[in-house]
């Protein structure tokens, strides 16, 4: 296990540092994706759709063809790319504001059409890029810059559980929620990402991996406190596990 973590940077990832904050889960997720891209050898055969949000410049880090989508529209844009190039691997990377608020229609309909896409959904319960506003996945009671007194069910609704929601759509093939707040879970996350990649490569169909991710800056917590926050707060509301896995 330790070996995996210490091995050198995946070759599909640009050398140098990212703009992600210390303790942020995006960096870990990027690393995992890079490892999977290397292991499956898909870098030269893939097209990445990057979202609006913290991962917007992901194309600066992953050395593959990519398109920066409008906010929430990656599943629509990615659908078209996959339809034009069915032999290429299309990766959809989205955050919670992107996927679960402004792009709800696009993700539901891409899932419902059973598009053969791989969606990596990073859920850190806030809008990180704009400075920690309330997201559709913000927990009840969680304070953000637009819910300064804490999120309340009345008037703001409950956090949206995307895995539970999408797993009700019969055309989805694989839905799993993982987390990157500790080593054990990072390993599980990588396995899930790899499975979602392989599903598309093997023509299985729509796969989505939700990744619970730390946002120390948005949460106003230290990196260590943020890991603890996932363990103690988020996991209760967002249980990890496989929500749908249709064997083909």
């Amino acid at each position: 296990m330790t070996q995996t973590i210490l091995k050198r940077q995946p070759s599909s990832i640009t050398e140098g540092s990212t703009h992600y904050c210390g303790g942020c889960g995006h960096g870990i997720t990027l690393r995992l994706i890079g490892e999977v891209v290397d292991e499956l050898g898909v870098r030269e055969n893939m097209i990445l759709t990057s979202p609006v949000g913290c991962a917007v410049v992901m194309y600066d880090y992953l050395k593959c063809d990519s398109i920066e989508c409008a906010h929430g529209r990656a599943p629509a844009t990615g659908t078209a790319i996959k339809r034009v190039h069915p032999d290429k691997f299309v990766l959809i990377y989205q955050g919670d504001g992107d996927l679960a608020a402004i792009g709800t229609a696009e993700i539901i309909h891409a899932a419902n059409r059973g598009e053969n896409l791989t969606v990596i959904f990073v859920n850190n319960a806030v809008y990180g890029m704009t400075g920690g506003q309330m997201a559709p996945t913000t927990l009840i009671g969680q304070r953000t810059t637009t819910s300064p007194f804490g999120r309340t069910i009345k008037g703001m609704g409950r956090p949206i559980r995307i895995c539970e929601l999408l797993s009700n759509i019969e055309e989805t093939k694989y839905i799993e929620r993982v987390s990157v707040h500790n080593v054990r879970n990072i390993q599980k996350a990588k396995a899930a990402i790899k499975k979602a990649f392989n599903n598309q490569i093997n023509g299985v169909g729509f796969s989505l991996v939700e990744i619970l991710s730390m946002c120390p800056i948005g949460w106003r917590l230290s990196p260590q406190q943020s890991q603890k926050y996932i363990e103690e707060q988020m996991l209760h509301y967002f249980p990890l596990g496989v929500y749908r896995d249709v064997e083909y």
Binding site: A76, T79, V84
Partner: peptide
């Protein structure tokens, strides 16, 4: 909105 963003993807492809 989805239709035009699909055009965006297809044109980029």
């Amino acid at each position: 909105v989805a239709a035009i963003n699909m055009v965006f993807g297809a044109a980029a492809a």
